[in-house]
Amino acid sequence: MQSKFNLPKITRWVLLAVWGLFAIFPVYWMIITAFKKQRDIFQGPFLFPFLDFTPATQSWERVFGQDRDDILKGLGNSLLFSSVSALIAVVLGAFAAYGLARYTYKYGPYRNNDLSFLIVSQRIMPPIVAVIALFTMFRTVGLIDSPFGMILAYTWFNLPLTVFILTDFMKRIPLDIEHAAAIDGYKKFAQIWKVVLPLAMPGLAAAYLLSFFFSWNDFILALMLTFQKSSTLPIVITNMSAQMEPRWWLISAVGILAIIPPMLAVIVLDRFMERQVLHGGTR
């Protein structure tokens, strides 16, 4: 692009490498921990497999053995809840963001800005105490421990985020593209769906990823709203927790599995972030 920050190439790479080391080293640490025996963890620091310590497969034997069903259940639930709720949140959020960007609302004293703040403010509420009320509500309507309930909760949790992120993107999409679409005979809904959304792709991709990550790593909602069959991966991991015995080797192994789905999501969505909004609608 244009805003080239004309640092010498070397400097750029060095800066990136420094950050990269900082960002990746903890991940590397997690990966090697999954191959350590417990005593290697507490006698360290051991950094290099084969040189410092002999890799052990103890953790993987459990992951594919006695803990397999639990992990699969958590992984499946997390994947289902995160991907579906993020999708719903992004679609609903995009429509609302479009509305806020293009129309003027007036509900009593509430105008666009108040409405968008109202929506974002949901995100402000600390989930810690809200969960007790949520628990009671969910129980009343029978949504405790149900996949639908969890998807609903995560959609609620992420919708403010997507609305807020996308409003800015929507504002930047040139109006004349829509006019062109209108001339081509598209109805309003089709205009948004077929013209505006594709143009907002970088924003949609970012919003999807963030929603996905937030649901993926949520602990407190899942803790309160699930019992057993809808438990998510963070709950499964916490159940393996180190309170009794520091099974960090096992937890690290599950951690490796836990970063695969979000990585896939990034790989799939990355191309959309790259796309640039075209001004004037021509290429």
Partner: peptide, 10 residues
């Protein structure tokens, strides 16, 4: 983006 994907306990 990797650090954002790691579960909190880990």
């Amino acid at each position: 983006l990797l650090p954002m994907m790691i579960p909190p306990l880990i």
